[in-house]
Design a binder for these strands. Structure first.
Lengths: 261, 261
DNA sequence: ATACAGTATATTGTAGGACTTTATCGCAAA
DNA sequence: TTTGCGATAAAGTCCTACAATATACTGTAT
């Protein structure tokens, strides 16, 4: 990425003496991110991977903050973020502990993104695409019934841009997302939009990595065009089928991109 | 502008006079809840209802905290909670503002609960049940294919308890939730479980109010039994149909319970 | 006049310390 | 065994100061 080298002035980072490995590893701050955000992400990943098991009790805030070399305020704000996503639960006297798996908001956009950054488990990937296979074809069905002419036009334009640039370019990927977003909006269902868009956004992140391993495994345009035609023609059944096929192929691509070389 | 009284000593709680709703209404703390939690909930509701529109810029933290009579730390932690749910976005120098609707995590369990506490819009209610109608019958289908004998037994027990106590009692409602939870788990899909359980939990909250207006509008046991039979018999198609019927009826009940008298 | 670079400044971000509230745990009494 | 109460540990709230950062402005060169 971009070389943010120099970094001479940093004084806080210097406390990088390594302490007991099992306990609290020091936080490594991502380039542009806030401190609490980096910590939240790291802890979230550790929780999701099971490294911090359900029910795990964190040290007291004062002690823990000291361990990882961060202020109590920042630590607490990171905990609030995790708490809002159902990952941890804090109570006076009882302390802060990892919540039961059942209470995790697995479909939260941030959690999805973080999970994909850290190589998600194949099981979860499978579950996610199974859910997509349930939701998105039905969303396409709704879109075929409810789309406006303006939305058809917008999807058409996005499809053209996508065909022109290809998915290897930034502009092409943007057009792809635009295409799917407009289709979602055509469903006129806020709940469906919220669900599908957060999943799509997470998967889109992997698209970038996809390009590294296999160079354009296939042409995605025909499938998109079939979907577009069905929606434009207000044919719900065809839209359903086209979207299902699209997801099936996306699963294959994603599996390939996540396989170890 | 703001009623900045003498501030004699602490006695923060006593300032519960209601003032102009638009500006900085004082926070009214729910009984058991934490201060930041109450604030987060109030702001969330105001955002979801559009009282605080997309893009709305909050006052600076120091000033705002003073306005509503709360410390800056607590205010910031409330903002972190809202930020984690995609409702607000904070940047240095730019301030904190309400995010675009597109980024709200509408299916977040807390947001759902808060929305149902404050009478959700009929549009969103409709959207939500449309999504349920898409997801849960398919989840039941998966459950019918994958359930274990232990799960069948557990569902059976829950169904018996439900029939015994009735939905008017706490025990009965608990058995109902237990029944649905076991069925979800039988689907063996974490993504589906996370989605359906959070929606169900929110709806369950309204079940309590349901009982106030109409006294047991109908007997829910037969429908549940039909669903159970289908899953026990490993009949996916029947399970799908039974769950769809169950949701259809649940929508009717919920609409009734939310109608003004 | 326009574009660009550098600087000023408002606002969030982080730090650290003091005090309050809450709920758990242990002990004693019934 | 159960109930009540008190000690206490931990999160919750408050406060103040300072650092980092992105916006806005300002001046200079093109």
């Amino acid at each position: 990425m971009r070389g943010e080298l120099e970094e001479v002035t940093m004084n806080r980072q210097i406390k990088n003496f390594s302490l007991k490995p099992g306990a609290g590893a020091l936080i490594q701050q991502g380039n542009g991110k806030r401190l609490r955000g980096s910590l939240a992400q790291q802890l979230a990943v550790q929780i999701l991977t099971g490294e911090l098991p359900e029910g795990h009790l964190f040290p007291g805030e004062i002690e823990y903050a000291e361990q990882i070399g961060i202020s109590r305020s920042a630590l607490r704000e990171a905990f609030r973020t995790l708490s809002a996503k159902g990952l941890v639960d804090s109570r006076p006297k009882a302390g802060t502990r990892v919540s039961l798996r059942r209470q995790w908001s697995l479909l939260d956009p941030d959690l999805l993104a973080w999970q994909f950054e850290a190589e998600p488990s194949l099981k979860f990937l499978h579950d996610l695409f199974e859910l997509r296979m349930i939701v998105e074809p039905n969303a396409a069905e709704l879109a075929a019934e409810r789309r406006t002419e303006e939305q058809v036009q917008a999807m058409h334009d996005a499809l053209e841009a996508m065909a022109h640039h290809g998915l290897a370019t930034e502009a092409g990927r943007l057009a792809d997302q635009q295409f799917h977003m407009v289709m979602l909006e055509a469903s006129r269902n806020d709940a469906v939009i919220a669900l599908a868009s957060s999943i799509m956004a997470a998967i889109a992140w992997t698209t970038i990595y996809k390009q590294r391993k296999r160079e354009l495994p296939r042409d995605p345009i025909p499938d998109h065009r079939a979907l577009f035609d069905a929606v434009a023609a207000s044919d719900p059944r065809a839209a359903h089928a086209a979207m299902a096929e699209l997801i099936r192929l996306a699963l294959i691509d994603t599996e390939i991109s996540l396989q170890p070389d």
